[in-house]
Amino acid sequence: MLISHEGKSPKVDPSAWIAPDATVCGDVTIGAGTRVMHGARLIGEGGGAISIGRNCIVMENAVIRASARHDCSIGDHCLIGPQTHVTGAAIEDEVFVATGASVFHGARIGRGAEVRINAVVHIKTVLEAGATVPIGWVAVGDPAELFPADRHDEIWARQAPLDFPGWVYGLDRTKPGLMVEITRRLSDELGRHRTDGVE
């Protein structure tokens, strides 16, 4: 389903294919030969743009998002696996993001890299060309350091200074009522979908 959002409509190359139960909403550009499979969601919100290159495969139930603060780009010949989550990241050509992986705001993934099953690439993390994040591991920082998921304290020591609330929402983590402000802002921003139109 193609949906316009705030005056911006998806642009889909005629040779691309989008499953009828997938959603492509807002400022989204999809390149030649790309396939967006069943249940996938590509959502460009608040002026944020999504760009997907040529011959990419976006598998079932993947979620790709952009926001006013973070555009999202995926190069050519990329495979975005089922149930992945990619938000506001820049992914170069020939990257494999496997089932259940998550890639967050401001991350950059170099050409030919692999983010394997259930792995995480955190905000502002830079993964070099050809690198691999092993199954279930976490990549954090610039340059990326890799950690198994059971090393939470070490991950948090690298992640905390990246300041997720500040980077993503422009809010101070130490501010009282942080979640109240985050959810209020998100409610306002997501409420803008009330005027979306199916094309």
Rank of each mutant, 00 (worst) to 15 (best):
V97K: 00
H105R: 00
I57V: 15
P134K: 03
D196H: 09
K11G: 06
P20V: 07
V168E: 02
H152A: 12
G46A: 07
V58P: 06
G166H: 15
R185C: 07
I155T: 01
C56H: 02
T23S: 11
Q83E: 08
A160I: 08
I43K: 05
W137S: 05
D13E: 01
P82M: 12
T125I: 08
A89T: 11
A98H: 13
A19P: 07
V24I: 13
A144T: 08
A157R: 13
E45D: 14
D142A: 14
R111C: 12
G26A: 05
N61H: 14
A22Y: 07
C78Q: 08
A149H: 14
T29L: 07
P161E: 08
N55L: 10
G88Y: 03
G88A: 04
D142E: 15
P10A: 00
G136F: 03
L42Q: 13
E60I: 04
V12F: 00
A119I: 09
D172N: 15
T174W: 03
R35L: 12
A101P: 00
E189V: 06
R69W: 00
P148N: 03
I155L: 06
E181M: 07
V140N: 01
S73G: 02
T23P: 01
I80L: 13
R41D: 10
V95H: 10
G26V: 09
G177E: 10
V24G: 09
I109Y: 03
D71P: 12
A66F: 02
G81T: 03
I182A: 06
R69Y: 04
I43L: 13
C56N: 14
N61T: 12
G48A: 09
R173P: 06
H77M: 11
S51Q: 12
G170F: 04
D71H: 13
W156C: 04
V12I: 15
A129G: 14
V138R: 05
A144S: 09
G106N: 10
L186F: 03
A131S: 14
V133D: 07
H85Q: 12
A157E: 13
R151H: 06
A68H: 08
V126N: 09
R158E: 02
P20L: 05
I52R: 00
S9A: 08
G81M: 06
V95E: 07
D172P: 12
A66Y: 05
G31V: 13
F104M: 15
A149M: 09
F96D: 14
L186K: 15
V97Q: 02
D27C: 01
D153K: 07
G197M: 02
R116Q: 13
N61I: 06
A98F: 09
T34I: 11
D150I: 01
W167Y: 13
V36Q: 08
R54H: 11
V115I: 15
V126W: 06
A40K: 05
P14G: 09
K124N: 14
D163H: 08
A139D: 00
D196M: 11
V133N: 01
H105V: 07
A40P: 13
V28I: 00
H122V: 12
S4M: 03
P14K: 07
A131T: 10
Q83G: 04
S4I: 01
A16E: 07
H70P: 11
P82G: 11
G26K: 05
P14D: 09
R192M: 01
T23H: 14
I109E: 10
P20I: 11
E45M: 15
